[in-house]
Write a protein that binds this DNA or RNA. Structure first.
Length: 290
DNA sequence: TCCGCGCCCCGGCCGC
DNA sequence: TGCGGCCGGGGCGCG
């Protein structure tokens, strides 16, 4: 499941392979074509397939950036600019390869849904086992409002200030803190795995209402969110279930997770608790987290 | 107008 | 061995 560290890793991995490449054609899987012919929008959202292909052809990739869990691939053609927006959902993966056969892992090769062919002959391939991911062609970022609504990037200078301001909003005061920190308008890119870890490291019970947390505790939580996300980036991401980086490699952050998916608390040895909080399955230690 | 709930998209995989 | 049901990120429609 790609969260911020995994998406950051995909961004860094793709960067050297796609910058400067010119897109000359796009191919969709039969599955995607079938979905769109039935009036659904598997993978590609907001445009019909041929419209998307027509619009993106001829653009050169000039930059790739990450915003929360979104990848923003910047495109330029003469004086026009545009973006290819990518969200990996739960099982999306990008591969920059010379041939589809170089995707060695069967479950990724069997679920290839979009193939961009570059003028150089190289391929940029989007694979997505569960098809929760999405691609959009945007003339400008404002055309997709949810992107504009995203809160601070955890590593930006004003992130702590904005995080604390968001936690002070009345609409969050009576909500469980785990639900609030997983809201990307509060802090970008903190999903279930990293929220679980940050709360454990902070000694905060995930059901604790935000209004029941003092300023020092809020700051400690912010610092742990940033630290665990940075650790995730440094470890190459967590390879739980379907995440792979652009070279098809797995990261190692899963080995450093202390509470996510754990049955026993590594700090005190007692059995962990499990509950659904904000619609997400959550593990915590009721002895260590208050 | 804002909020919150439930739905939807889907295949892997768990458990019976 | 077969199969029903659960899981989950995030937008959106509805009440």
């Amino acid at each position: 499941m790609p969260e911020l560290p995994e998406v950051e890793h995909v961004k860094r991995g793709l960067e050297p392979y796609i910058i400067g490449e010119k897109i000359i054609s796009v191919h969709f899987s039969n599955t995607v074509e079938h979905s769109h012919s039935e009036g659904r929008q598997a993978i590609l959202k907001g445009l019909e397939l041929q419209t998307f292909s027509g619009k993106i052809k001829g653009y050169t990739i000039t930059q790739i950036n990450r915003r929360s869990k979104y990848l923003l691939i910047q495109l330029e053609k003469e004086e026009n600019s545009a973006f290819l927006l990518s969200h990996l959902g739960m099982s999306g993966a990008w591969f920059a390869v010379d041939s589809i056969d170089l995707i060695t892992e069967g479950k990724f090769r069997n679920h290839v849904h979009v193939i961009f062919t570059f003028e150089s002959g190289r391929l940029l391939i989007y694979s997505d086992i569960r098809r929760f991911g999405e691609l959009r062609f945007l003339e400008k970022l404002e055309d997709y409002p949810p992107l504009i609504a995203i809160g601070p990037e955890p590593f930006e200078e004003k992130a702590q200030e904005l995080f604390l301001a968001a936690l002070s909003l009345p609409k969050f005061s009576r909500k469980p803190v785990k639900e609030v920190i997983m809201n990307h308008q509060v802090i970008a890119g903190c999903g279930n795995i990293y929220a679980t870890e940050a709360l454990f490291r902070s000694g905060i019970h995930p059901k604790r209402k935000v209004e029941r947390m003092g300023l020092a505790k809020r700051i400690q939580l912010f610092n742990e969110i940033v630290a665990v996300l940075q650790e995730g980036i440094d470890a190459g991401g967590s390879s739980i279930s379907d995440y792979r980086n652009v070279n098809g490699e797995a990261g190692s952050m899963q080995d450093r997770l202390q509470m996510y998916g754990r049955k026993i608390c590594p700090a005190c040895g007692s059995a962990t608790k499990q509950a659904v909080i904000g619609g997400r399955n959550s593990h915590y230690c009721s002895a260590c987290q208050r």
